[in-house]
Design a protein around this nucleic acid. Structure first.
Lengths: 215, 215
DNA sequence: CATTATACTGAACATTTATTCAGTATAGGT
DNA sequence: ACCTATACTGAATAAATGTTCAGTATAATG
């Protein structure tokens, strides 16, 4: 119960060289990985805790030791995904000069992420499922707000750079997200190249739709 | 077992003056109405057959007499909704002269239908749910194809009228559907006026995006 | 009136599955 | 060496719920 222990607990995970905690983090990751793969393959509802137990090679109780419940486990995976996305995007963003290019880049990245990232389908299932704890509902609302805010900033950049001539940035941020959200669902019925093409074209239309007119 | 009886059975419903069949149609409708209201209120999964039984005031077995199963009941409601939409749209369409106006009209109508029509949320839940019988999956694919085909024809009209200058009509039909699909999900978090405004703006952007350029 | 097909009942069934909890093992601290 | 908190076990629980089916009522039929 020393100060050092306290600090040690505050730092999440790998920084602390404690054999027990290290092992715990590892099994938590093992559970998360197994769960992610299964949710991706079978969907949220269709994946039973029992399935995760088998795949992760641990007990059911252990899952509930590391996560509050099934919902909590899924939300953890979503947040993990968001974190990863932010991190990768922050790097990728630098290679684009104009906001227009950023948007095209985002579309391309989303198309590929959507294809490669398995959780999208389960996420849509989860988002659209009515039975959620109020706190989870709230957390999802925050996530959605986050996506829109992300778009809003990007669009505002484009306005500041005189690339777009629009007024209602907030509304357009929602429209952009709608477009991408709908596309993510349709792209599930497409091949990789087809999806990529669809995302590009969608962005063409959107950008033309908000571009500076000549007159 | 006369010819008249056979014809009578072929005509669905009210045309036939048979007390028993009439009553049967009526209870089927009562079940459908109760189910629609409950699915709308609580979602697909969260609505138990038991709930429908109570609301419709009939037995569980009766539901399975009129519908194959829970999925079948829901698909019936979806198809009913589609039929109704087509019918209403066919009338409404006539008041618009240009394809552009038709699209605005569709957006407005969709925004209001989305708001007023309760099934949308449950439909999204159902569509995104992974556990579906293969035949149901197939039926859903057909529905989606139907929506896209609807868009495709509308866009083709616009091209024929020289309102738009686009080539890849099929792809744009998907993009339009994506936009509307995503919007339907976001509009659930909006007030009526806000949703209407969003749909209008979305159509502004889309139309500007595919409009004839000056050069 | 008798027969039959249709419409309907509702209790029982079968299965699935998230969650808990009493108990065990062990690493870390003292 | 002893103690304690942490990590983990896995069988039992408990509730939900879609679906069936043997049986009943009744309108149509001949």
């Amino acid at each position: 119960m020393t100060l050092i222990l306290k600090i040690c607990q505050l730092e999440s995970g790998e920084a602390c060289v404690n054999k027990k905690q290290q092992q715990a983090e590892q099994t938590k990751k093992k559970i998360a990985d197994a769960a992610r793969a299964l949710f991706a393959q079978k969907g949220y509802k269709a994946t039973a805790i029992e399935d995760i137990v088998k795949a992760a090679g641990c007990s059911a109780g252990n899952i509930y030791y590391h996560f509050k419940n099934k919902e909590g486990l899924f939300v953890y995976l979503l947040e993990d995904w968001n974190r990863e996305w932010d991190r990768t995007w922050l790097v990728k963003e630098k290679q684009y000069l104009t906001t227009t290019d950023k948007l095209y880049g985002m579309a391309e990245y989303l198309a590929l992420d959507q294809m490669s990232h398995p959780l999208t389908k389960a996420a849509d299932e989860f988002f659209n499922n009515a039975e959620k704890a109020p706190e989870v509902e709230e957390r999802i609302n925050e996530m959605v707000q986050g996506y829109i805010e992300f778009n809003r900033r990007l669009l505002q950049q484009g306005i500041d750079n005189d690339e777009f001539a629009i007024k209602n940035v907030s509304s357009l941020a929602i429209i952009l997200d709608s477009l991408l959200l709908g596309l993510s669902q349709h792209s599930r019925r497409m091949e990789r190249e087809e999806a990529l093409e669809a995302y590009r074209l969608a962005m063409d239309v959107f950008l033309q739709g908000i571009a500076r007119r000549i007159r």
